[in-house]
């Protein structure tokens, strides 16, 4: 179980690292016109990133589920 927890934390850590790094890519100099709305950022990428973050949390929770830890409490 402990190795599963480590894998889970590593997976989440890697994701958060890229989460921080990706911010430079989010904003663009001019209006994007790449997607609906004329927003100044790659809005499709932004939503994708948030979705990926949700999935990262989901998989983290799956890899080290809370009931297991309750036994140690």
């Amino acid at each position: 179980m402990k190795s599963k927890k480590k894998i889970g934390i590593l997976w989440l850590g890697i994701f958060i690292f890229f989460f921080f790094l990706s911010q430079d890519y989010l904003f663009i100099e001019e209006n994007s016109r790449l997607w609906w709305g004329n927003f100044p950022f790659r809005i499709y990428f932004f939503f994708f990133l948030q979705l990926a973050f949700s999935l990262a949390i989901f998989f983290f929770c799956q890899s080290y589920w809370v009931e297991e830890e309750l036994k140690d409490t």
Binding site: I16, F27, P40, Q50, F53, S54, I57, V66, T73
Partner: peptide
Amino acid sequence: YSYYGIMTMGTSLIALAFYFIGQKTWA
């Protein structure tokens, strides 16, 4: 619009607390 990026990504990270603080608190 920079405020949107900051608030969204910053607030998203609160979800981590649901696990690292929330689950143990619940237990």
